[in-house]
């Protein structure tokens, strides 16, 4: 993968770059603020940009604003928003429109290097990667949250994992069940939530998120 990193904290910036380089990826640009991020992405057209939300000059949400702008300007560039906390409104803004080639992860997730790089690869390939925390908040804040009451706890768990961007195989592995069982759960969820069945895992995420919005 060719990657642009936007992060103002030097320790995290360097650590992240080393980690990705060790894994054989190419970090084409490292920037410390939102404006340079736009320039760097336009110049390098990377597979994915890793974007911190809070950056200079105001240290509020300039990273997110730029991430949303990047998704509009460069649809082919994946954007992984990388933050120390989850804000429901940020997640909603980021996912508004289409939930493809986008991710929102807590910085903590980098501790599991393998999973983090998988998520980044998913986003680069046009998939999604949502932090379980993000999914919980989105489901909790949904206007249609009541409809979710119809789901069994197991089905809700599957829905959450689906929303995070996991494939059926990954879902089956993480729940220690067979893929057939997973497919059955998903079928039930779609029926209960009145969603037309479809294939391709990020289309499911899209459907789920659209339902949640």
């Amino acid at each position: 993968m060719r990657i642009v990193i936007a992060e103002d904290n030097a320790i995290l910036r360097d650590g992240l770059a080393q980690l990705l380089i060790e894994r054989g990826h190419k970090v084409v640009a490292i920037v410390g603020d939102a404006t340079s991020l736009g320039t760097a992405v336009a110049e390098h057209l990377p597979d994915v940009a890793v974007v911190d939300i809070r950056m200079p000059p105001t240290f509020t949400d300039e990273g997110l604003v730029e991430a949303v702008a990047l998704r509009r300007r460069f649809p082919e560039v994946g954007v992984l928003v990388f933050s120390q906390w989850v804000e429901t409104r940020y997640a909603a803004e980021l996912l508004a429109g289409r939930a493809a080639g986008v991710g929102y992860l807590l910085k903590d997730r980098v501790a599991d290097v393998g999973e983090f790089v998988d998520a980044l690869q998913r986003v680069a390939a046009g998939g999604t990667a949502l932090d379980p925390e993000v999914v919980t908040q989105l489901i909790g804040s949904s206007r249609k949250a009541k409809a979710l009451d119809a789901l069994t706890p197991r089905e809700r768990e599957v829905l959450g994992l689906m929303a995070q961007g996991l494939s059926n195989a990954a879902l089956a592995a993480s729940l220690h069940v067979t893929e057939r069982a997973v497919e059955k759960h998903i079928g039930n969820i779609f029926t209960k939530l009145d969603l037309p069945p479809s294939d391709g895992h990020h289309r499911r995420v899209l459907a789920v998120l659209r339902y949640l919005e």
Partner: peptide, 24 residues
């Protein structure tokens, strides 16, 4: 909040990242 976010929390993330790489 600013002190924790920019200092301690960032350092802990970096530490977790380094240990993750060590596991690798």
């Amino acid at each position: 909040e600013r002190d924790l976010h920019d200092g301690t929390q960032a350092r802990l993330v970096a530490m977790a990242m380094t240990l993750g790489r060590a596991e690798d």
